[in-house]
Nucleic acid binder design. Structure first.
Lengths: 131, 131
DNA sequence: CGCTTGTTCTATATCATGTATAACACATAT
DNA sequence: ATATGTGTTATACATGATATAGAACAAGCG
């Protein structure tokens, strides 16, 4: 599970780390209860500060993606429950993106094609046949 | 075309203004060549600084959504060309969102359902039958 | 001239981001 | 006991983004 960071981009480093770990969990590269590298270790590997990694980990913990213990370190959390309230959050995030797509003359099919492409790219090991 | 801003949220004001105008264009509430309120006018209406509105307008101009003239003011730009390069940008934006959705046990169908729902909410007047 | 338009400039205040260093509480291994 | 490794917290500093404020400019129009 290699994590790379773009220092030149306008996306915060801790957000990049957080996103890549979420992607790793979604893709099945990070399995439940699997230990994550310690904050100091990952910071040294990437070449960033400990607090930056800690901020990413803390956010992941608050969002329920990982579990942190002062002694045993950080671990991937068990799979989430399927909460309908998340769909409202998803809709809020998709609203400006879909509007942009419409302005670029993309149809709903075009957007869903991209969604399915990303889904397949992540889903090689991410699905376990729940539906 | 009413624009409202959430001062308490963590989304920059100029981004909120920019997003709502994009949504307005996508929904057909703002038609091509339609004049936008002046930066001073909109700033006064919303209750924010002129520079904040100017930043939103400048970004919209750089992205091709609107056209600005020093004398005639700001106007909605003509419809965009359908560029394939945008789909790559869209895919980059959707990647973390789809990963999040997978972690929340949402399937590709669930995501596309939300996309279609947003598409319909915006598309009441946004489509003109291009495909 | 008077008014409006976008544009640019300076200045200030606040918050986010990232780094740096250090210490703490807790657990484990030597 | 000592050493090492966890996450956690605290302080400090530098930089950039965000937002505000006031002022001025060039250009068009009645």
């Amino acid at each position: 599970m290699l994590i790379e960071v773009d220092f030149a981009g306008d996306i915060p480093i801790y957000t990049q780390v957080r996103d890549q770990i979420v992607i790793g969990i979604a893709a099945g590269l990070l399995l439940p209860d699997e230990p994550l590298p310690s904050v100091r270790r990952l910071a040294a590997d990437i070449g960033i500060n400990v607090h930056t990694v800690n901020k990413a980990y803390a956010q992941l913990r608050d969002e329920g993606y990982i579990r942190m213990d002062r002694r045993s370190g950080a671990e991937v959390a068990p799979p989430m429950e399927k909460s309908p309230s998340y769909l409202a959050t998803l809709e809020t995030k998709l609203y400006p993106i879909v509007a942009e797509a419409i302005c670029h003359r993309a149809g709903a099919g075009d957007i869903c094609d991209v969604v399915n492409r990303v889904f397949l790219a992540l889903g090689d090991r991410g699905e376990d046949g729940n539906e």
